[in-house]
Amino acid sequence: MLSINNCQIQIEGCLITLPNITLEKGELLVITGPSGMGKSTFLHWILGDSIRHANISGEIMLNGVPLSGVNIEQRRIGLLMQDVHLFPHLNVLDNICFALPHRLKDEQGSKLSRRQRKDSAMQMLNKINMGYVAEHYSHQLSGGERSRVGLVRALANQPQALLMDEPFAALDPDTSAKVSQWAFSQLHERGVPSIMVSHDLNNIPSQAQHLDLANYFQQV
């Protein structure tokens, strides 16, 4: 469960006071609003990244633990951006292995070997019928393929929550619809609470919560 309370965003003379947010397992929050209002910055703040052009305050609780003062790498929150940033020096399979948690264990409780990690990454790809890209590098993939691999990689990390920054905006409408539908079902299936920043409200599942920043904004 992810909750954000008493959150205020101060950016370029604007003050945005957000309502308290609570996301249960598998729930999705879509944030919209005019550009320049700090939507992406808000995601980076949740992630734990250092924020430069804004001031954000508030409490984040993930599964009942406060996140203030916790490093990015200890938060276990995933991030999916428009440019997926697949590591160019690794092929698709190794990109996914890179994201698999270090302490991943098999049924007997012993740490996975190199081979086993590769196998489980391959399984994830196969599950979505993308085994054929395993040996490819980022620049050899199409936009749609890259987005899907990006999501597989993000989920491989078993995040406690996932943040998405216009993840499908670069895709053509057809692909975007297909990929996003598939993505939301994946997230729901895994029970990962997610927040997505988007410009367009098409292809959003009906049960998703919606927050329009424009409604909470005041000039100072």
């Binding site: 790498e73 940033h85 590591f87």
Partner: peptide, 27 residues
């Protein structure tokens, strides 16, 4: 070098040293 690569690696739980070596250096 795009800093988002290291950000992504951080979100996967890699420490600063690991990020530097496994991402920045490799790139």
């Amino acid at each position: 070098l795009n800093r988002h690569y290291e950000l992504v690696a951080a979100s996967f739980g890699y420490s600063p040293w690991q990020r530097w070596w496994k991402v920045r250096f490799m790139l």
